[in-house]
Design a protein around this nucleic acid. Structure first.
Lengths: 353, 353
DNA sequence: TTGAAAGCGCTAACAG
DNA sequence: CTGTTAGCGCTTTCAA
């Protein structure tokens, strides 16, 4: 491994006896340079193994050509897909990606905003750790275009691209009710985030429509035990325990909705162990349509989340903002999604929208 | 949104009537600055909302304080966990992360190496798109410390941290054989990567030890149909189709190993549909121990991959290289892993190492 | 068409 | 203790 310093424009210039900026323009394919000169310069650059210094370039150009992506947990398959899509689409437009993982820590979240500011990213895509998001508002006000992903701050005037969870939950719950459910509950993770709130609202609306009332709150918060590592998806065991409790208490409804497919795994187990048949004795519906969901017995009825569409839309919106379209009002975009009906809800009506 | 230019050291200096570099040193907490001056400077910096420019800083310091991470597919849960771990550990040491997603494209892989070079990352962690990896060798020779993750180029002198797939496959296969299997096959994805090769070798060794011979090749390559989007994990359907074929042909062995748990989903379905009972008529073993694997019926016996350990070890090795320990021979580290025994292999011996 | 000079924002040397 | 000078590698004036 040669410890040679990196080749710079100056090196090429010196080696060829021309000025630095002739080299710069030759390599940038500007027309203000002679045919032969350009050729000699390019040859020499290749010979020396010249690699442009992006940082220096960015410094003078005033643009980092970098997007920041802040994610709470890449092990969430939905977010994993967002990462892929976003990186790909950003790269297509010439942007590099700086990734920050917050693991639901408000502290890390706050620092993430700071880091992005320091690096001068051209724009930021962020799944915020919710609660208070002033630091994100500040980032945005500092002139860094940003769009929130999946989690929205209704109170803050920030661009947002996510899922129409309300509509999705409404449809899914209606579907279970049409399937015959007269008592239902919804198991949600215990985080104060907008997706949970919106799903709960949609779920409740469906219940209200059908005139279904329950003694207690039908939306149940799953106590997610501090996981060994947050670098994992939701823990089925958390939902398993809760479902067991419900069964033991004799509170089991006709149908159980869960905020994510992983919880469905736990619910399946609890029901099965109690001698109940999913899709028959109890209907189950989830969110995510993760690859395993189609392969469970019975197959899980679940909402497919349009990760690719959301990632793409978010990047496109961000790029638009970066291009200067910054004074328009904040956009709140909620993508509709499909309910994938499988045997866990018994009915077999195909895909509805 | 104020379109105000970013506050710089110069602004603070001007506003206070001191020199730029006094400001620099005051803010850097160097001791060569008066108590009161420092205080005034810090106050003014805060008042003006000064944010240091990392790029400028990096340019002069000659270090980007950035690590590059090149991943083929974040939707692979193993890689998702690596991303989390690596970002976290890098951040702990003050490094930002630049993420590149290659989606198994040799072209993108090549460009990734170039991008990292241009940005002058301090080090790179890469899951290479295998085949030929000269560009990675070049990156390394250019003086950028790098370590390969999960996939090794035995022929190239590059640092490597991954899984001891050979040992894992050996153990898992032995376990199935001890469980009574006398004919076995291994379903692997059709990629020319070292993990596949190593698992196959371990699998074959176990067969040889037991004196098991088969008519055809017991290692079967699963034709992975070009997926709609590569931003997804393995496709269970690919393994499902193949398993169906095997069953139809009457070639079904006593035990089926699969290179990843997603394939097991497909195998389960094919077997079930053929009226066979997993863990009874046919034993199944996988790799990954994904969250769903424990919740299948029957639970899937599978190899747990130590993603966190590998991510941590890789970062630590990289940081060590960055610190200058660059002349030692390339290190090839293969982490051992546990076989998680569940009902799909019938036996119930607890966790073995 | 080319070169010289200036500057992006910051830090490091050296004076004073 | 503080200011001046220099320079990281690059691009963009402006002259020549």
């Amino acid at each position: 491994m040669v410890e040679s310093r990196r080749v710079t424009l100056k090196d090429i210039a010196k080696s060829l006896g021309v000025s630095v900026n002739t080299v710069s323009r030759a390599l940038a394919d500007k027309d203000s340079v002679g045919e032969d000169t350009r050729a000699r310069i390019k040859a020499e650059a290749a010979r020396l193994g010249y690699v442009p210094n992006s940082m220096a370039r960015s410094l003078v150009l005033g643009s980092a050509m970098t997007l920041g992506l802040v994610i709470t947990n890449p092990s969430n398959p939905f977010y994993a897909q967002l990462i892929s899509t976003i990186e790909q689409r950003g790269r297509t437009h010439g942007y590099s990606l700086m990734l920050l993982v917050t693991e639901e820590s408000p502290e890390v979240d706050r620092r993430a905003a700071d880091t992005l500011l320091r690096w001068g990213v051209d724009g930021a895509l962020v799944v915020p750790v919710q609660g208070e998001g002033e630091h994100w508002a500040r980032l945005s006000e500092s002139g860094v275009p940003m769009v929130c992903l999946n989690r929205d701050f209704p109170s803050l005037d920030l661009d947002f691209v996510g899922v129409d969870y309300h509509h999705a939950a409404l449809q899914a719950t209606r579907h279970l009710i049409e399937g015959g459910a007269r008592s239902l509950c919804l198991l949600e993770e215990d985080l104060p985030i907008s997706p949970v709130a919106e799903r709960s609202a949609g779920f409740r609306q469906a219940l209200a429509e059908a005139g279904i009332e329950s003694s207690g709150d039908p939306v149940i918060s799953v106590p997610t035990r501090r996981r060994e590592s947050l670098a994992l998806p939701w823990e089925p065991a958390d939902a398993y325990r809760l479902a067991q409790d419900i069964v033991d208490r004799g509170d089991l409804p006709d149908a159980v909705m869960v905020g994510n497919d992983y919880f469905a795994l736990g619910v399946y187990r609890a029901l099965t162990e109690a001698g109940l048949r999913v899709g028959d004795d109890v209907l189950v519906g989830g969110f995510g349509d993760h690859p395993f969901s189609a392969y469970l017995s019975p197959g899980l009825t679940t909402v497919r989340l349009p990760a690719a569409e959301i990632g793409t839309a978010a990047v496109d919106l961000l790029l638009q903002r970066i291009k200067g379209d910054g004074d328009t009002a904040a956009e709140k975009r909620r993508e509709r999604c499909d309910l994938v009906v499988r045997a866990s809800s018994r009915a077999s009506k195909g895909t509805m929208t």
